[in-house]
Design a protein around this nucleic acid. Structure first.
Lengths: 212, 212
DNA sequence: GCGCTGAACATAGCATCGCTATGCCATGTA
DNA sequence: TACATGGCATAGCGATGCTATGTTCAGCGC
C-alpha cells in the first residue's frame, strides 16, 4: 500500500449517488463522476464497478434506517415502542422511497444480510421487552414477533411505495399491528391505547430535515 | 391497416421473455429476438420498445396469478377459502419468482392497475362471503380485509423471494392470518381449523406442471 | 535525502445496449 | 391488376459498463 485510496472520494460518490437517486436522475457511471473531478476509474478502485456502488447504496440505506430507528425513544410501554418502531420504518421508507427500493429491489446479496439483521434487531429488542413485561405471552418468541411486525411494515410500504395501492393504505397499519399484538396475548384495550400512542407519536424530524 | 401484425409474434416474444426470465438470462432486445427469426423491429411494432415489453410481462404475470387464484375452489368455509387464496398467492409468487419481481419492481404503471385490481377482487369476494356468513363482524369492510390479507401475503413473499429472509419465514403465514381474521371477529377455534385447512390444502399442480 | 515501487487515478477504446432512420415487401383496396 | 400502407429487416447512432494502457505520487529501503 504505497498510495492509500482517499476515503473522501468514496463517501462523496455515495452521497452524490443518493442525491441523484432522490432527484430521480438515472445513475450512470459517467453521469455519477461528472462534475466531481474524479474519473470513472475511481468507481472501480472504490467499489469494483457499478454493482459495488449499488451494494454500497444498499448499505447506506440500511445505515440511515438504523439511525432513524435509533431515534425512537425507549419508554416504559414496549408495545407503544414497537408500534413506534414500525411507524418509523414506514416513515423512513416513504421519506427515502428510491433508497428503499434499492435496498430490496436487487437480488439478495449476502453482504447485505448483517445490515438487515441489525435493522431487525431493533424490533427484536422491543418484542423481548414486551414479553418480559408481561404484555405478550411467555411463549412468544421475540424474533418471530419481530419478523411478523416487519412483514406487516414491509408489505404495507412496498405495496404503497413501489406498488399499486394508494398512500391511505398505510392507515391499515394500526389495525394490523393490533391484530398481531393481541394475538400474542396483549390485552385488547391496553393494546389499542399503546398502538394509538406509538403510531401517532410525532416522528423526530431531525433526520428528515438533515437529509434534504 | 393493410398488413395486420401477426399476434403470434407477440405471444412468441412474451413467452420467450418469460422463459429467459426463469432461466435468469438477461433480457436484451437483441438476445430476445435472437433465434426467433424476427428482427429487433418487431419489438417496437408490437410493444413500442423494451418498456412496453416489460409492461406486457407484468400483465402476463397478473394473468397467470389470476388464473392460479381461479383454481382455488369455493367451499362453504369462506375463511378457509381466504386462507387458500393467500396460500395460492404465495405459491404462485415462489413458483414464478422472477415474474413476481417484475410485477412489483418497476415503477407503478397506471396501465397495470386494472390487472392488480382484478387480483385483489378474488380476495374481496372471499372476504365478503366471510362477512355475510357471519364469520366476520358486520362492520368489516371486505375491501379492507382483502388489502390487509394482501399486505401480509406480499410482505411475506417479498421478504423471502427478493429479500433477506429464508424460506421458512413463510411459516408465519397461518399465524398472521389467524391474528387478522380473529381481529375481524372470527371465533379463534373455528379460525384455527379453517386456516389450517386452507393453508395445507394441496395446491392444484396443473398450473405448475403446465408452466414448466 | 533520494530513488524505487506499486497502487491510485486519468485517458482512450471496446463490446453491447436501446433506439431510430431508411428501404423492401407483403397485403388489403379500388 | 396497380397502388398505397403498415409490418418487418438492415444499418447505424449515442450512450452504457468495463478494461487496457499510460501517468502520477505516496511510502519504504538505503
Amino acid at each position: 500500500m504505497v498510495r492509500p485510496k482517499d476515503p473522501a472520494v468514496r463517501t462523496q460518490l455515495i452521497e452524490r449517488a443518493a442525491v441523484m437517486l432522490r432527484a430521480r436522475e438515472p445513475i450512470t457511471l459517467r453521469s455519477l463522476v461528472a462534475g466531481t473531478g474524479v474519473s470513472t476509474m475511481a468507481v472501480y478502485t472504490h467499489f469494483g464497478g457499478m454493482d459495488g456502488l449499488w451494494q454500497a447504496l444498499r448499505q447506506e440505506g440500511f445505515t440511515r434506517l438504523g439511525a432513524r430507528l435509533t431515534t425512537v425513544p425507549v419508554s416504559d410501554d414496549p408495545v407503544r415502542d414497537l408500534t413506534a418502531l414500525a411507524a418509523a420504518y414506514l416513515d423512513n421508507a416513504l421519506t427515502h422511497p428510491d433508497l428503499y427500493r434499492v435496498m430490496f429491489d436487487a437480488s439478495v446479496d449476502l453482504e447485505d444480510l448483517p445490515a438487515a439483521d441489525a435493522t431487525l434487531e431493533h424490533l427484536v429488542q422491543a418484542a423481548r421487552r414486551g414479553r418480559d413485561a408481561g404484555r405478550f405471552r411467555a411463549d412468544v418468541v421475540p424474533l418471530d414477533l419481530a419478523i411478523q411486525s416487519w412483514t406487516i411494515g414491509h408489505g404495507l410500504v412496498s405495496l404503497v411505495a413501489t406498488g399499486p395501492l394508494p398512500r391511505e393504505t398505510l392507515d391499515h397499519g394500526p389495525f394490523l399491528l393490533r391484530a398481531l399484538f393481541t394475538a400474542c396475548g396483549d390485552d385488547p384495550d391496553r393494546c389499542r391505547a399503546s398502538v394509538e400512542q406509538g403510531w401517532h407519536r410525532p416522528a423526530p424530524d431531525d433526520e428528515r430535515s438533515a437529509a434534504r
